[in-house]
Each structure stands twice: as structure tokens, then as C-alpha cells.
Write a protein that binds this DNA or RNA. Structure first.
Length: 263
DNA sequence: GCGACAG
DNA sequence: ATCTTGTCGC
């Protein structure tokens, strides 16, 4: 049930949104060979998979990859039953709580691989009210986040086929980007074709504490395939975890009939 | 008015 | 999100 409180919560959290670079690390490709300043090394990714038999049973996954090798150095899972439905524009209310929990667990343990930036499968400010899952999670975790959508959320006149057409017209290089400017003139994000073979673009937008330009840079250096590795790995691993623990998870998460106290 | 709408 | 086989290509 989506009501005013959800709407207001997004508005409240949105006041804390930071849409510029607010971190100390640099990309290793950075021109200024930083003396003493840290390099971006640990990139996180989150995703969730759902049970085909019961779509309320889900597995949330957090992975951390090491740059520049793109090797997975950490992963963690959470198997749970969701009680909040998916409603377009309110994805965060369904997925953010678990993802936040997994992140906090890692931070509380003072894990050495705690991510410097997190990639989220879901949009950032590319959202009807400018506050998608990536923003929501970023603000709550106080972590730089990048929104990555595999489909375009139709906002401000933005349209999937037009974006594709525009990218087609670019007879440019291999990887192609197009700035997503809506009817109002607002820049919502970037459409991006990571590889030659991927006709379908991905949609990158600011999550929290990062600029669009930096977000796109990070996406570029993490793309082996169409979907950036951190998200792709979280996707693969959450799905595998769900399948491997399918039998057990059904027992644990099964809805049992209410306890009947025998007289 | 109808349809479209991240995962 | 999930349902789904083969198939073309490096």
C-alpha cells in the first residue's frame, strides 16, 4: 500500500541528497598522479533475486570487487520474505531495508573491504521524483552510490526507443554515451552502450555523493559485459544462492498456519 | 480517455 | 523480478 508517508519519506530523504563528488579517492586513471591520496580500489554492487514459485521469497546480495582486477573479494547474502510489493517509483521501500542491513553488518565488522562506492541495480535520480533506490540507499548508508538501470524509467518525456535511435545515429567509437535530457531541460542521467555487441543501453544516474561524470567513469572501468561487473556478480550470486538453498529456504520461510493452542 | 512506468 | 532453447560467434 503506497500512501502519503512513502511519498513524504522520499521527499525528506531527498533533502540530504548530495549530487556532486563527495569522497577522497581518485580513479587510478586520474591525470593528477595523487601523492598520498587514496585510489579507488573497492567497488560494491547489490542486487536481489526472487523465487519463481513464490515471488515474495528473495535473496539479497552484496559483493565487493577489487580494482583494477575486478576480482570479487567479498560477498554476503540475506534470504528473506518480503511483505512490501513492487510498485513503480517505490522500489526502495521493497529493497532498501535488506540491502542497508547487509551493508551495515559489513561496516560494523570494520571489514577492510567495505566499498568506497556502491553500484545499485536500480535508478538514482532518474526517477519520477528524482529519488530512486540508489539515492535512497546512498543517503541511508551515507555512501557514494551509482544508479544503474537496465530499462529506462519513463520520466520527463524520456523514451526508450528515442534513446536507442540517438545512440544509433552516433557513428562514433565503440562505447557510446548519450546524455538523458528531459523535456524540462533537466539532465537525468546517461544512456550508455558498454560494448559493441550490446544494442540495448544501460542507464546510469547519480545515486548519492557522486557527480554524473564520475559515476559514468566508474561504470566504464567496471564493464566487462553490458552490465557492470559488481551488479552482474551480485545478480549471478544471489540467483545461485537462492537455487542452492531453495529447499531449506522454503522450510524456513514457509508461512505456517497460526499456532493453535491445544486445550 | 488509454497506455506507459526501475526491479 | 520470473517464465524459456537454441543458436550465432569469438
Amino acid at each position: 500500500m503506497i500512501c502519503l508517508t512513502s511519498f513524504r519519506e522520499q521527499d525528506e530523504l531527498k533533502k540530504k541528497l548530495i549530487a556532486y563528488d563527495d569522497f577522497t579517492w581518485k580513479l587510478s586513471s586520474s591525470t593528477e598522479l595523487s601523492q598520498g591520496s587514496e585510489i579507488l580500489k573497492y567497488v560494491g554492487g547489490v542486487d536481489m533475486s526472487f523465487c519463481k514459485e513464490d515471488s515474495s521469497v528473495a535473496c539479497a546480495c552484496l559483493v565487493v570487487l577489487e580494482l583494477p582486477s575486478l576480482r570479487v573479494v567479498h560477498h554476503d547474502f540475506s534470504l528473506l520474505r518480503l511483505h512490501v510489493p513492487y510498485v513503480p517509483g517505490f522500489l526502495a521501500f521493497r529493497e532498501a531495508p535488506v540491502l542497508l542491513q547487509i551493508l551495515q553488518k559489513m561496516r560494523d565488522e570494520k571489514h577492510p573491504f567495505y566499498p568506497q562506492v556502491l553500484m545499485v541495480d536500480g535508478n538514482g535520480i532518474l526517477h519520477p521524483r528524482g529519488f530512486g533506490l540508489a539515492c535512497h540507499l546512498g543517503v541511508l548508508a551515507h555512501l557514494p552510490t551509482i544508479g544503474v538501470g537496465k530499462n529506462l524509467h519513463h520520466v520527463d518525456g524520456l523514451n526508450q526507443s528515442e534513446v536507442k535511435q540517438s545512440l544509433q545515429l552516433q557513428i562514433n567509437e565503440h562505447e557510446q554515451t548519450i546524455t538523458l535530457v528531459g523535456n524540462s531541460g533537466i539532465t537525468w542521467g546517461v544512456g550508455f552502450r558498454p560494448t559493441l555487441s550490446s544494442l540495448k543501453p544501460i542507464y546510469v544516474s547519480v545515486g548519492h555523493r557522486i557527480s554524473l561524470d564520475s559515476a559514468v567513469e566508474v561504470v566504464k572501468i567496471t564493464c566487462k559485459y553490458r552490465v557492470p561487473e559488481p551488479i552482474r556478480q551480485a545478480d549471478i550470486r544471489s540467483r545461485a544462492y537462492l537455487q542452492k538453498h531453495q529447499t531449506e529456504s522454503f522450510k524456513e520461510l514457509a508461512v505456517r498456519p497460526p499456532d493453535q493452542t491445544e486445550p
